[in-house]
Amino acid sequence: MNGARGGQPTILDVAARAGVSKSAVSRVLSGTGRFSDETRERVERAAAELGYVANAMARGLVSGRTHTIGMLVRDASSMLYTALHAVMEQRASELGYRVVTTSGVGRVEDEKSALAALVSMRVDGLVVCSGLLPAADIAEFAPRIATVVAGRPELHPALSSVYCDETDGGERIADAVADAGHDAVVVLTVPLDNAITQHARSSAMSRRLRQRGATAIDIDASFVRPAVDIAADVVDAMRESGATAVMCPTDRLMLDVCDALSKRGVSVPEDVSVTGFDGVFPLANDWIGFTTLQQPVERIGREAIDLVIGRIDDPSCEVEHRSLRGTVLPGRTLLPR
């Protein structure tokens, strides 16, 4: 039987099976204090026979460390956040940590509550991957726990961050469109209160196009607007201003808009060129052929974990803001004029 009540075996069960004290079991399993080779062998054998697995949270009450990192992602269905999560889990595992993840539901108060819930689980550090939660709300946690913002430009003096340079990325993909000869371009713009990242990149696209002498037609791409309505506005802009290209703030929206345009009889890229932003698998696959700005997701994820563990190990280390450049991926959705 596993345990006195038939449930999961406890440290007391291991001590009874090994014929040693509870404190001796604790010393052996934590690798601290003094114990003989004989005691270690008895404890390890008893733990294996009972199927005992030490509880990381319980160990944390004693050691002050749980070797877990809490991660908040805004949208668990986002391919970008999914890719970031996978990279962070891998890097954390390499450094002896596990990642506990929760997601928001699109409201600031819910994301802040999610962070508080992670802290209550005694995680050693927090990584925030959200373009919605204001910096001030995240910074409230920084004095108590190592906190890093990943995937969005964040220059708050209390928060370390690592992110793709959204302004540079928006300008570079806009340059690709202008270089292809498009002088009237629709830019799907996202309000600041929808997403800090998408607002920054779409604003940079419009600004750069105008600097290059092109006409930028801004169309509202608020999250509440369905792709069919956005596509209808794009068709109107093509008819009224002669727009020959559409710039999207994400690959996901690009896919939806391309589909909605196709249903209206508009062919991509023959009738209108389209670009995206993010460049994560599977939408970055060569077979699909999106022209997009690829974020350095591998570096963002790994460096975010390195930063948070660095702050766990040394809370006095200086705040860092790491801005990384993305890469323009040429594809078949952008044709020269």
Rank of each mutant, 00 (worst) to 15 (best):
F290A: 13
D193P: 02
R91P: 02
V100E: 08
D110Q: 11
D233P: 00
Q90C: 14
E154H: 11
V128L: 09
E270S: 12
A227D: 08
D183Q: 15
G169Y: 06
E166K: 03
I11Y: 05
V190S: 03
R152V: 15
F223W: 10
A150L: 04
Y97D: 05
P191V: 00
T333L: 13
T10K: 14
V228G: 01
R252M: 14
S316Q: 14
R107N: 09
L335R: 13
V266Y: 08
A237N: 03
A245P: 03
F35S: 02
E303L: 01
A237Y: 02
V177T: 01
P153F: 06
E166S: 15
D271F: 06
G242P: 05
G96K: 06
C129P: 04
R27C: 14
R302A: 14
N194S: 14
P153N: 09
I305W: 00
L261V: 08
S77P: 03
H199V: 03
P134C: 14
A54D: 08
F281T: 14
E320I: 11
R34N: 09
G96S: 10
V228T: 15
E41A: 15
T333Q: 08
P269C: 11
P134Q: 14
R210Q: 09
D236S: 13
A178L: 04
V149A: 01
S113K: 10
A200M: 06
S77L: 12
V297K: 00
I305L: 04
S241V: 11
I138V: 13
P143K: 11
D314C: 08
R122Y: 08
